[in-house]
Design a protein around this nucleic acid. Structure first.
Lengths: 223, 223
DNA sequence: ATCGTACGCAAACACTGTTCGCGAACACCG
DNA sequence: CGGTGTTCGCGAACAGTGTTTGCGTACGAT
């Protein structure tokens, strides 16, 4: 039994205690990566392009990060640091909604975040701070501990889903996805879909829907 | 206004009416891709490896598919064809749960599916069949049409989330993710997390939780 | 001043998705 | 039966990708 080979990045020391000191820091590199992703999308964050943005060589990044996935983890946790966590008010529904509201804002600020959140659920230092805060909000709630964890996951996932839809609706390149739906509607098969697309009121006051859907889903999870 | 350049793959003819006939079909290629992904993971589905599995050249695949993303869409819709859709029973809760149950089985059969589902929501021919079925199940439900669409999205996303957690729990390589959580717990900060990990009953009878959480979330979405 | 160590990084490796160009194969048509 | 028009199969090449290796360099401590 060899055990796990390398611990997660948060448990690895950032700088060696001896030898030539590093010229940069993980935080610095993470900030540059986030900014690059914000500006040109997640695919633009390649080791070479990121290194170029930092004015260094690609191989140098591997002194700070074992792999590109580590870099993504750092980026995720950095955004988790953007939460402003107030003291619990006593109204856990309102407090959870406040968290979700901030999550939505953060994800809208970083359009690459929703995909990463649902793809690789990562808990770094800031992520654990957030989880601690959520558990604090739910301290007096009678639900089991496991259910509170589920609520955390559901809150993140549903928020990511919502923001992804919001962003896709704004991006015209993804709108041709619905071309096939209209095609199906006019084809005559699938009468329910035809009726649905004919429905004149398909607007979305997404702000309110977000709050109500999430609240109900969370109360469901928490029993 | 140039409009969208290329329509979605479902609206492009599979074979040209004239010229040399193709030696393969989209279905054949899709089947090989799914089998390869089942066996060796989604990353193994590269154009070259897939072509090799089919006994052909990589460039040949581009006669059937404009891009690799098209291939992923085909794979997604192929799994949507694995549903067995019974006639609605009149109990919409039970019928939705049946759909979710099948979704979970399908995603467990194809471990690469959850990520794809939450990453690129795609509706192909089989996907629209499934949506039509869901709308049929909810035909007598008084909710707005938009809310039924939300229910569809939430059902898919939450199922994917659950299966992803199930698979991660079974895979020992992802278990070192929680090493940091234990580290935080023993560190003394974050007392709620410490208490949570000390809680002796953190098992998950995931089957039941899946049903109850999903039911409650869906009833929440549908109002 | 020397030593030990970690850092910065050019170059190389093994890939990836995608495009180009061309020969071969077929269906049709006169 | 012999063109002819069109598509198909695909080797080769292009522009990237993440990552490893090796080595000169810069620093802190002795």
């Amino acid at each position: 039994m060899a055990g796990q080979r390398e611990p997660v990045i948060w448990l690895r020391p950032e700088q060696a205690p001896v030898g030539r000191p590093a010229e940069r820091s993980r935080a610095e590199i993470t900030a540059a990566a986030v900014e690059l992703a914000d500006r040109e999308g997640l695919d633009a964050v390649s080791m070479r392009r990121l290194a170029a943005a930092l004015g260094t060589g690609a191989a140098s990044l591997y002194r700070y990060v074992a792999t590109r996935d580590d870099l993504l983890d750092l980026m995720i946790d950095r955004t988790a640091g953007e939460y402003r966590l107030p003291v619990p008010s006593g109204d856990w529904q309102a407090d959870l909604l406040e968290i979700a509201h901030q999550a939505r804002q953060i994800m809208r600020r970083h359009p690459w975040l929703p995909v990463l959140v649902v793809t690789r659920p990562t808990l770094g230092p800031h992520g654990t701070d957030l989880l601690e805060h959520l558990l604090d909000v739910l301290a007096d709630h009678p639900a089991e501990a496991a259910h509170k964890l589920e609520a955390f996951a559901v809150l993140n996932a549903l928020t990511a889903l919502f923001v992804q839809n919001e962003l896709a609706a704004a991006d015209p390149s993804a709108q041709r996805q619905s071309a096939f739906l209209s095609h199906v509607a006019t084809a005559g098969t699938h009468p329910r879909i035809s009726a649905l697309l004919a429905d004149p009121q398909l607007e979305r006051n997404s702000r309110d829907r977000f709050a109500t859907v999430l609240t109900r889903a969370l109360t469901g999870v928490l029993g």
